[in-house]
């Protein structure tokens, strides 16, 4: 680390979003940069409520070493870094978003209420989503399902390495492409990879459907693999762990937290595998997060039909459906199983 200039930012206040583009649900993220703002790579991944499960010090150390190699090769390697550079943004800082404008100073107030003066990174994603919702516009997939974890394409990476495949899901896009456990992914879409976050950067910007080209090192030999992703591929991403999903629940479920019914419980309820079965795990109590409660939903209600949809889906998939199909102000019909009875309710969209 002595070979780097080390900067620590603990606020998103006035954060330059034209440079710092990462998964804003993270509580720890790192950038490796040249002084001319060229991005060498990113670090920091998360797929679960446990913030540290997908990162490790060993992985960070290897990413740092790889960043130094890119720095030594710069600017001769500028062309291969092109795809890693930030994309144009509509708002330069979080406070430029309409929902955050005028609420925060550009620096922290290091007084007794310092935490309240902090713009959190996740507020950036929430503010972006509000621009769609406030305008009654469907949210694009990439806004609802940002920074897909590679497991959505069938790849699980070793957190102790840069981008080494630990598992390949049978039948997945990765399996069909020929990936194997132990493959060291050197590049994706021509971009050198320092970390799992760099893989996610490519996925985040990948179209739907997509064809992505990878190089992998296997038994000392480099190979080229092609990852074919079908239309709507990112909608299988689990976003339930994300802090920003709290606001999606306000918008779509009126504050209800929904859990997919376990297979055993599904069988006990005589529900087929293909049927919708989302159990109300938590009922919000305050403000717009109490809209579900006010509409009559109760903890442990089992939602088996909503807005005419009765096919199996996760809470995340339900978010996606409602955020793209139903705008604020409408009420959608839902049927729940409660103590053996079918109860019809209406859920307000917000």
């Amino acid at each position: 680390m002595a070979r780097f200039v080390c900067v620590r930012l603990v606020q998103a206040n006035a954060l330059d979003l034209s440079l710092f583009q990462f998964d804003y649900d993270l509580t720890f993220a790192a950038f490796f940069l040249n002084a001319d703002r060229t991005v060498y790579g990113r670090f920091g991944s998360r797929s679960h409520h446990e913030a540290e499960r997908d990162i490790s010090l060993a992985g960070l150390r290897k990413a740092l070493a790889a960043a130094l190699e890119l720095h030594q090769g710069y600017p001769a390697n500028r062309a291969e870094l092109k795809g890693k550079q930030p994309q144009p943004v509509q708002f330069k800082t979080p406070e430029d978003y309409p929902s955050l404008a005028g609420k925060y100073a550009p620096t922290l107030n290091y007084g007794p209420n310092v935490a309240a003066s902090c713009v959190h990174c996740h507020q950036t994603r929430e503010a972006e989503r509000l621009t769609f919702r406030a305008a009654n516009k469907p949210m694009p997939d990439e806004v609802i399902f940002p920074w897909p974890i590679p497991t959505v394409v069938g790849l699980a990476f070793d957190p102790a390495e840069k981008a080494t495949v630990r598992e390949v899901t049978p039948g997945s896009a990765a399996a069909k492409a020929g990936f194997r456990p132990g493959d060291e992914m050197g590049s994706l879409e021509g971009q050198p990879l320092l970390s799992i976050a760099d893989v996610q950067w490519v996925l985040h910007h990948a179209p739907s459907p997509a064809t992505l080209h990878a190089t992998v090192q296997r038994a000392g030999q480099w190979q080229q693999l092609t990852l074919a992703l079908e239309a709507g591929w990112r909608r299988r991403t689990d976003i339930s762990w994300r802090a920003t999903s709290w606001d999606l629940r306000r918008m779509t479920t009126g504050g209800l937290v929904l859990k997919a019914l376990e297979d055993d419980a599904r069988r006990q309820a005589a529900l087929p595998d293909s049927a919708l079965a989302l159990r109300v795990d938590y009922v919000g109590e305050y403000g717009e997060h109490a809209a579900g409660k006010k509409a009559g939903f109760r903890k442990d209600d089992l939602i088996v039909e909503i807005d005419g949809q009765s096919q199996r889906m996760t809470e995340s998939e339900l978010f996606g459906y409602l955020l793209q199909k139903r705008m604020p102000g409408v009420r959608i019909p839902a049927t729940v199983l409660r103590a053996g009875d079918r109860v019809r309710l209406e859920l307000p969209m917000q």
Binding site: F4, V5, C6, V7, F20, A30, F32, L33, R37, L64
Partner: peptide, 18 residues
Amino acid sequence: GFAAARQSGKPLLVVLRC
């Protein structure tokens, strides 16, 4: 940080921590 990187020729490690 950018000024120090320009002066030293070192790359930057920028950590964002909530």
